[in-house]
Design a protein around this nucleic acid. Structure first.
Lengths: 148, 148
DNA sequence: TTAATTGCAAAAACTTTGCAATCGG
DNA sequence: CCGATTGCAAAGTTTTTGCAATTAA
């Protein structure tokens, strides 16, 4: 999805919720889109603050991140210790993560069968799934090789 | 596994690491074992503090929880917002969780096929898995029925 | 106009840590 | 005895919030 299309959908979302269309909110979307990788909020705040033109304060970033989560453009994908790592999911197909606990590398993967089995489990428990997160922590290939 | 057996294994673990065998550590194990359900650390601290005989301070609880994680007796199983929910896993077979976002109910499940598929994915990426967590958030049967 | 938003600083919630006293081996 | 552990309070992190000023509709 193009960022412009996303922003226009976000605009609809805001209007529909009775929220206002502000410059700051869209600049944050641009920043997240151009950041191009998984991020933590404080990381994003610092990165935004270091740009020539500051587009939003820490509170606004936190508040907008929450809005974008409700909207569905970003998602909490990794919870490691006290850290929360987000990703920009806009338009990207759903996937899960392998996280290297040595170097922090994040590998994305998707297995249809895993999704199907989850649906099956939910059905068995008459549970209505809304979303899920599968995190596999371990050592990536590179780090494994360095160990020898 | 019996709690006594677990404590004896924990004792071996401590000795092997060069740590000391203290009363407080074992009393915390007893408390967690008798708590009998998923818990958050602050919840545990408060619960322990409310007992006739206080067995450990907040810092000791935090420090011991970390030790027990390393030892493998407890595990961070759910990360929801800023909350971290632990479970006492001692001897229990591995399983995943369905979490009702409405009432907080936690349902445990295990699907061998899901585990196998994960191993397969890891192999495909030459990734050495250490541990994983699959959280499915949704609405449980009871909450769904109440909605009508 | 007026209700939502922003930035700030303060507060909140959770967790870690320095240190002196104490305890275990 | 010596080094690990404990409790406390202080500090560190991350996130939320109250409020006055500002801005969008």
């Amino acid at each position: 999805m193009q960022v412009d299309e996303l922003k226009s959908r976000f605009e609809q979302f805001l209007k529909q919720k009775g929220y206002k269309i502000t410059k700051g909110r869209f600049e944050i979307v641009d920043k997240i889109a151009s950041y191009g990788k998984h991020f933590e909020i404080e990381e994003l705040v610092r990165w935004i603050a270091n740009q020539n033109k500051t587009v939003a304060s820490r509170s606004t970033v936190y508040r907008t991140v929450r809005l974008l989560q409700d909207f569905g453009a970003i998602r909490e994908v990794i919870k490691l210790g006290n850290r929360t790592i987000y990703e920009f999911v806009a338009g990207k197909p759903h996937h899960e993560h392998l996280i290297c606990v040595e170097c922090g590398k994040i590998i994305e993967f998707y297995k249809d069968e895993i999704e199907e089995l989850q649906d099956k489990v939910c059905e068995e428990h008459s549970f209505t799934p809304l979303n899920h997160r599968l995190e596999i922590f371990g050592i990536c290939k590179d780090c494994m090789e360095k160990r020898t």
